[in-house]
């Protein structure tokens, strides 16, 4: 056995073998024919749907009151910032050279990326709890990819309830923009939003991996959340140093400002390429770091 490859007594190895996994628990490599790959995708989709249903029952049916308050809170926060931007821009006309609707486009893109990433990656908030309660040990015994299973553990359907009004308002704002939107700009907007989700995923994976390594409840996720809120406004409001940090170190600008600028047709193709390169680099780092951390995982639960 290679160092750190499997430092857990694996009782369910035969089950894992059946689903084409390899002995290294962090190195699940599948080389399957097309039909089997389709089968695997369907299997993962089924697992994800089952987990989503479980959380739905837990959050909505057992804690209805709690859910109503959470949804209301999120909508109130959204509304307050929306009113603030309108009130501010009504007086100033522009913010860092952007008109009211352009500024609102940045704000709505921030909300879109934030809500969708929260929807898929909520589990990162519970990683400390999962480690302490031994959930990771339990997950490691399951015949699915460990990272997939951790990330899918909490699927926050609450975010879908807030996503609907955000998408509607985003549509209205895009329709009211002074500049006309070309088909290519729109496609690149969608692609860069996907790129943003890839970066969000990578950052969450790094945070999960850090928790696996340190075995502590990770509060870094909250720092990320607060950093993300810096993207509510166009990145151009910040000084060049802060802009550099928000583009290359913690690429909030790549996640929010750059997609919005592409839609407005004010971004060069070089920046589009750089953005995708940053996305892929972060994804690579995230996955590498995850494997590094998982090989060093040791259970601390009782």
């Amino acid at each position: 056995m290679k160092p750190g490859e499997a430092n857990i007594n694996f009782k369910f190895q035969p089950v894992l073998d059946k689903v084409e996994t390899r002995p290294g628990i962090s190195n699940v490599k599948l080389h399957l024919p097309a039909g089997r790959q389709e089968f695997q995708i369907m299997k993962y989709l089924r697992v994800w749907t089952r987990l989503a249903k479980m959380r739905f029952r837990e959050y909505y049916i057992e804690s209805r009151l709690h859910s109503i308050f959470l949804i209301s809170g999120k909508l109130i926060r959204f509304s307050f910032f929306f009113i603030f931007i309108i009130a501010l821009l009504t007086k100033t006309q522009t913010l860092a050279g952007f008109s009211l609707y352009q500024t609102l486009l940045f704000f709505m893109t921030f909300n879109l990326i934030d809500i969708v990433s929260q929807f898929f990656l909520r589990s990162a908030y519970a990683i400390g709890w999962m480690i302490n309660k031994g959930e990771i040990d339990y997950i490691l015994t399951q015949p699915v990819n460990t990272l997939f299973r951790i990330v899918s553990d909490i699927i926050d359907l609450l975010d879908l309830a807030t996503l609907v009004p955000v998408v509607i308002v985003l549509g209205i704002i895009v329709a009211r923009l002074e500049t006309s939107i070309t088909f290519y700009n729109f496609i690149f907007y969608l692609l860069l939003c996907f790129n943003a989700l890839l970066i969000a995923f990578s950052i969450h994976v790094v945070i999960i991996a850090l928790s696996i390594l340190t075995q502590e409840i990770s509060s870094e996720i909250w720092v990320y959340r607060d950093l993300m809120t810096m993207g509510r406004f166009p990145v151009d409001i910040y000084s060049s140093l802060v802009q550099f940090v928000l583009t290359f170190i913690i690429p909030i600008a790549v996640m929010v400002s750059i997609p919005a600028k592409v839609l407005l047709g004010i971004l060069s193709w070089q920046w589009i390429l750089i953005s995708f390169a940053i996305g892929l680099t972060f994804f690579g780092i995230g996955i590498k770091f995850w494997h590094f951390a998982l090989r060093r995982y040791s259970s601390i639960s009782t």
Partner: peptide, 17 residues
């Protein structure tokens, strides 16, 4: 540190305005 991040955003926002 989290409190500072909000401060940074608001500081630059109002400076720009």
């Amino acid at each position: 540190f989290r409190a500072i991040l909000l401060l940074i955003t608001l500081y630059f926002l109002w400076t720009q305005v």
